[in-house]
Design a protein around this nucleic acid. Structure first.
Lengths: 331, 331
DNA sequence: TTGTAGGCGTTATCAA
DNA sequence: TTGATAACGCCTACAA
């Protein structure tokens, strides 16, 4: 645990035969306040630093400077492709800007407090979090990614509430009048059912299956369907996301049901896999890249103007038509 | 950027009406050296800290303690499912142990130095890196994940050199005598070709396609194949990894080629998608979870015994038989 | 049991 | 142009 022998400014100063403040200034090289160092001394110092493999201690730096390189990223579900993409994208873009991303995963509410506390200890310059139901007691610029706006913090509103409507409308346009639902959030299902009813589409409870997300959920949805006689099936399945859709299609295929001929399937997120799976999945795109960039832009704005009024950004998903949906076959 | 008003020990001490060292001791609560604090004072202090939302400044902590919570994780290709899984697994397990993972992605060799320098500035207690061709000049306990052993550092040797042989042997056993290769490392291809020759298996250059990894590479491999008359095809394709295999299968399917009836396909890595794709992919498992745990165990050992002789761990992949391979059809 | 003082590595201020 | 010195927030001997 203990660091063997840290190389510090003192070592470099000794090696170069100058004072520590000279070293600091030379190595800061315009980044800090004062720059007046003769080229000769600077060269001497740079050589010494290189020789000793010196790197300034960031912890000490933050302590004096009062400013932080850290940006906390508090996300859950790293196993889920979309969130994994989003967080690594965030980390990557932040690193490009010279920040050190502090990733902290959480699973449960209780867990979130730990993750939050852990990150706050490092005094990050900002935080990007996907948890809406939290107070965020420490005054650090924070942006939330969630389905609904946070009461006081800037929120990137995910397409969660919107995409099921987009998907339902598309299936309706194709001619589907019997639609099932796979793995939808409990609180969202009502809204979708209302929309389906509005469109005059039939939905039966036995076509719907609960569950959060993941391939497994899709598999189970298929199993549930397969227990029903084929004649009682819906003609299309609206899935919570691509994982569910892919799981569903896989299981159906195993039992000889062909998508989209026998069943149309629509997903959401547009993960990388969606365009390679068989058949290529029609889905609603959430674009991890665009989302990451927008989140960072929102955070930077907040960091610059900590007292600006709160501001939201609403993301509506984008329909990506591929091969997993078609007009229902007569049978 | 500037932190508004940091809450420090002084604030808590003032609030509780005690000295700062009392606060430090009370909050450390046995974790540090001295614990002698009366319950009454401790309670007072804890209340004050809670009221002010105080969290100790980790940067200051590291500075005094001389010990670090950081573990640097230097990996590339976060877009690739397997590496994304591995790094988030590493980060998760490390966080569980009370460490703060410092993720730093790199792409090119030049880039790696930046990523390395960036991480070293934080004085991590250890580093896990996937880059073999580097000096690692700073004396920090380091473990490398690579295809070949590093000259001085502990290395987790990936199954890279071994799995193609496992795959080739399996296809041979199934009866395949004409095998193509999709997206294999240039330096590995020779070894595979040698093995195929050894087995008496035919391989033709026009069946093989280069490229690093990714669905696209698989697609291109398929396109290349499709340009050939069906009679001149191999009966099986050995793919660099699951991404390539999935991309290949997808493109073949689009053109009416059915896997495994018309073509056997084998992947590597056993990413989550492998068991949900159609058909379920036969592959060589690298197990991100087991790999992450082993890497961490190796690192902790090194951290405890910085001077122990270097030690490697060799991982052979594990064959996972699913539905994308079968004996070749006569045609 | 509590408080005082010194030091961790760096930057910034001010004097030389 | 350079060098001493005081912070930064925390921990830990050591003194009270």
């Amino acid at each position: 645990m203990r660091i063997k022998k840290q190389i510090t400014l003192v070592d470099v100063a000794k090696e170069a035969g100058v004072s520590i403040s000279a070293v600091s200034k030379a190595l800061l090289n315009g980044g800090g306040k004062t720059t007046k160092i003769s080229d000769a001394t600077r060269e001497k110092i740079v050589q010494a630093a290189k020789k000793l493999n010196y790197r300034p201690n960031e912890s000490a730096r933050m302590l004096t400077g009062g400013k932080s390189n850290y940006i906390g990223i508090l996300f859950s579900n790293p196993e889920e492709r979309y969130y994994a993409d989003l967080t690594s994208k965030l980390a990557d873009l932040l690193a490009e800007q010279g920040y050190m991303p502090l990733l902290s995963y959480w699973r449960t509410n209780d867990n979130f407090s730990h993750a939050y506390d852990a990150v706050v200890g490092y005094r990050p310059a900002g935080i990007i979090s996907c948890h809406r139901d939290h107070d965020y007691p420490v005054p650090i610029p924070t942006v939330v990614y969630a389905s609904d706006p946070h009461s006081v913090l800037d929120t990137f509103i995910s397409p969660n509430h919107h995409y099921p409507r987009v998907a339902a409308d598309y299936l309706f346009e194709l001619g589907h009048r019997k639609i099932g639902i796979a793995g939808i959030f409990p609180e969202l299902t009502d809204a979708i059912l209302a929309r389906l009813a509005e469109l005059g589409v039939v939905n039966k409870p036995e076509w719907n299956s609960p569950g959060p997300s993941g391939y497994r959920v899709g598999q189970k949805a298929a199993e549930q369907l397969l227990r029903l006689p084929r004649k009682q099936w819906p003609t299309a399945m609206l899935c919570r996301n691509d994982l569910v859709a892919i799981g569903l299609m896989g299981e159906l295929h195993l039992h000889g049901v062909e998508v989209p001929r026998d069943m149309s399937v629509i997903g959401a997120n547009d993960i990388e896999e969606a365009k390679h799976v068989i058949p290529h999945l029609t889905t609603i795109s959430f674009s991890a890249d665009a989302t990451a960039r927008k989140l960072i832009a929102m955070l930077f704005r907040r960091m610059e103007k900590p007292d600006a009024p709160r501001k939201d950004f609403q993301h509506h998903g984008e329909l990506i038509i591929r091969n997993s949906c078609m007009e229902p076959c007569k049978r």
